[in-house]
């Protein structure tokens, strides 16, 4: 009993330490990790260093200063209602990271248990779950997210739910594959023969050992999820004014791009940097965990 239950732990620790070594070895991945850390700090400390938090949090307007180009006073310029874009873009980091975490988290929460159950139990349950998954997978994710968001009505929460609905089947499928490969492994068999209840085996042995591909995939998806939510906001299906969400800011900026071309630049750059960082991290993690490309 003690042996299989404790088996993965030291290996995981060692893996983390080893992964850390590999991460620092790949410069692009290091950069990605660095940016993500900086973004987290920015998001947490936003209220401390932003000049006009009220422009971002409450959306207080200051129309006399509308559409000012970037200057020492307004680093990124102002929007059509005279709000400091720097403050809004910085606060937007919080929203985007929140969206990423919540939407991916929700998708994992739906997708992982289903994949686990399908893969471990097999048979009829597997059949049903995978058929449903197939149906969801036959929609391009952005399309499904748009359709669901349009149905649920316009709000950021609904946009996140829509994204989760579009994303969970990927985790189910991935999870199921991993679980099936683990199902017949000796330590699982051993646990089974010792009479451990199925749910306990699923959680303590199979789940713990099959999470790493899913986690890698989730970190890769973080970027696309942020992009998708911005796309929804851009189409008017996500954030609501005056939320300083990047997609919504860009969507508004589009109305002024001939008069104020700088308006769209900074929120867009912020988004590119964020998504890029997560993609680099995700790629790096995948290379590390994939034995085929793993370098020593």
């Amino acid at each position: 009993m003690a042996l299989p239950a404790n088996r993965p732990r030291p290996a995981v620790l060692e893996q983390i330490r080893y992964s850390g070594y590999l991460i620092t070895k790949n410069s692009l991945t290091t950069v990605g990790f660095g940016i993500v850390l900086v973004l987290l700090v920015i998001a947490l400390l936003a209220p401390v260093f932003v000049p006009h938090p009220e422009h971002a949090v409450l959306g207080t307007t200051n129309v006399a200063e509308a559409l000012r180009p970037p200057s020492g006073r307004y680093l990124f310029g102002t929007d059509e209602l005279g709000r400091d874009l720097f403050s809004r873009v910085i606060y937007g980091t919080r929203i985007s990271l929140q969206i990423g975490t919540l939407a991916v988290g929700l998708a994992l929460l739906i997708g992982v248990p289903l994949g686990l159950v399908a893969g471990y139990l097999g048979g009829f349950v597997d059949e049903v779950i995978m058929r449903v998954t197939d149906i969801f997978l036959s929609f391009p994710p952005l399309l499904l997210a748009i359709a669901v968001a349009a149905l649920l009505g316009r709000s950021l929460t609904n946009a996140m739910i829509a994204i989760a609905i579009a994303w969970w089947p990927w985790y189910t499928r991935l999870m199921r594959g991993t679980v099936i490969s683990l199902r017949e492994k000796p330590f699982v068999e051993a646990a089974r023969m010792m009479g451990t209840p199925a749910t306990r085996i699923m959680v303590r042995h199979v789940l713990v050992n099959s999470l790493s591909p899913v986690i890698v995939q989730a970190s890769l998806d973080f970027g696309s999820v942020i992009l998708t939510s911005a796309a929804l906001s851009f189409l008017g299906l996500g954030a609501q004014p005056p939320q300083p969400e990047w997609g919504l800011i860009l969507s508004t900026a589009r109305n002024y791009f001939l008069v104020a071309p700088w308006y769209s630049f900074f929120p867009g750059m912020a988004m590119v940097i964020t998504v890029l960082a997560f993609n680099l991290v995700g790629d790096g993690l995948r290379e590390i965990t994939d034995p085929k490309t793993r370098r020593l």
Partner: peptide
């Protein structure tokens, strides 16, 4: 509708001063 959205956002700030929260919903 840009004009109406701007009116709503400007008003939101004024109402906040009166302790009234304005929830703007575009649809």
């Amino acid at each position: 509708d840009e004009n109406h959205r701007k009116v709503a956002e400007m008003w939101k700030g004024e109402l906040a001063k009166l302790g009234i929260a304005l929830d703007i919903r575009t649809m």
